[in-house]
Computed example of a mutant assay.
Amino acid sequence: MQSVKESARDAHNGITVIGSGSAIATQVISNDDLSQIVDTSDDWISSRTGIKKRHIATSTSLSELAAQAGLRAIAHSGLTPLDIDLIILATSTPDDLFGSAAQVQSIIGATRAVAFDLTAACSGFVFSLVTASQFIRNGVYRNVLVIGADFLSRWVDWGDRTTCVLFGDGAGAVVCQGNSEKDNLLGFEMCSNGALNNTLNLSYQGNLENIGEDKQINNGGFSNITMNGREVYRFAVNKVPEVIEKALFRAHLTTDDVDWLILHQANKRIIDAVASRLKIPEQKVITNLHNYGNTSAASIPLALDEALKEGKIKSGDVIAVSGFGAGLSWGASIFRWGR
């Protein structure tokens, strides 16, 4: 006789991605605005990054913006918050260092869902999507809400023109659902290399303080984002095409089968170089970097949601997504959109 969990596993061991949503901060900072505070210009930023403006959060919390994106994804999927079994919040900038996923769960009203944060920086959405798929394939949960949200503006040195021009704030989400008849998550690959951590990080800086006669504590906080742009570029253009090809191999597909490529929106030069190496034509590459900058874990689901709203992506389209960044971490997932 089958157990309840075994029956659940048989009932929905495939995965479909059935809904998307996004939310952005309201304040817009253009390249011209930045030229008022650092030695830069619209031409300098645009030519090197492809970014024209970014949205910066002020009074809105990350949990609130993530919840907005999540609610829109749930509505788009035709479900209600009470249908959600699990919420995975991909973020490196929570409102609370102990995690913000539970706050998001409360705001959404998904009272039946368990919620946790997943920290993998700009790879966070891809890693979370893969994590969600494992819970579904194991028959543990049926409806999983995956949210990517980051407020990197909190950790930017606004006097450093090499980093302050890059980052923006936003949130994007998808709903994944178990399906007994099909499995639309076709393949994935994930990688990490901690030896390169110092090329892009947001590190803790502590100071030793004496307590009592012979004891010490380490008291401090996190510093601003630091990045070696040249090394990150070299890493991305070499490793991202490779990880996408590995994910495609696991899916028994080639680049010719890809309808849409959505990369982490870090830099237009990186996006163009990766697409060129994969021989994926420009008309198949989805970008919105110019409007939002680098929104870290939010960038892929934000771009996905916009493309769906614009009618570019159709049900049945094969989408290749890849995130890459701090850790260093990188990964790719291949999925077919829709039920």
Rank of each mutant, 00 (worst) to 15 (best):
V4Y: 14
V4I: 15
S7E: 15
V17N: 05
V17L: 15
G19I: 11
S20H: 13
T26P: 11
Q27D: 12
V28A: 09
W44R: 12
T49P: 11
K53Y: 11
T58E: 14
T60S: 08
T60D: 14
T60K: 08
L62E: 04
S63T: 03
A67W: 10
A69C: 00
G70W: 03
R72V: 04
P81G: 06
D83C: 12
D85V: 12
L86E: 15
I88A: 09
D95H: 05
S100D: 06
S106C: 11
R112V: 02
A115D: 10
T119I: 15
T119C: 09
A120S: 12
S123A: 14
V126E: 03
L129C: 03
T131P: 03
A132S: 05
N143C: 05
N143H: 04
N143E: 00
V144S: 01
I147R: 01
D150W: 02
W155S: 10
W155Q: 07
V156S: 07
T162D: 14
T162R: 13
T162I: 02
T163D: 10
T163C: 07
L166T: 04
G170I: 02
A171V: 14
V174H: 09
N179W: 00
N179Y: 02
E181W: 01
N184P: 07
E189Q: 04
T199Y: 15
L200D: 08
L202P: 05
N210S: 15
G212N: 10
I217D: 09
N218T: 13
M227Y: 07
E231C: 05
V232T: 01
Y233W: 04
A236M: 00
N238C: 11
K239C: 00
E245T: 14
R250I: 06
A251W: 02
A251L: 04
T255W: 03
W260N: 03
H264E: 02
H264Y: 07
A275M: 10
I280M: 03
I280N: 02
T287M: 09
T287H: 06
N294Y: 09
I300E: 00
I300N: 00
P301G: 01
L304E: 01
E306Y: 07
L308Q: 00
I313V: 05
K314S: 09
K314R: 13
V321P: 05
G323R: 08
L328M: 13
W330L: 06
R336Y: 07
G338C: 10
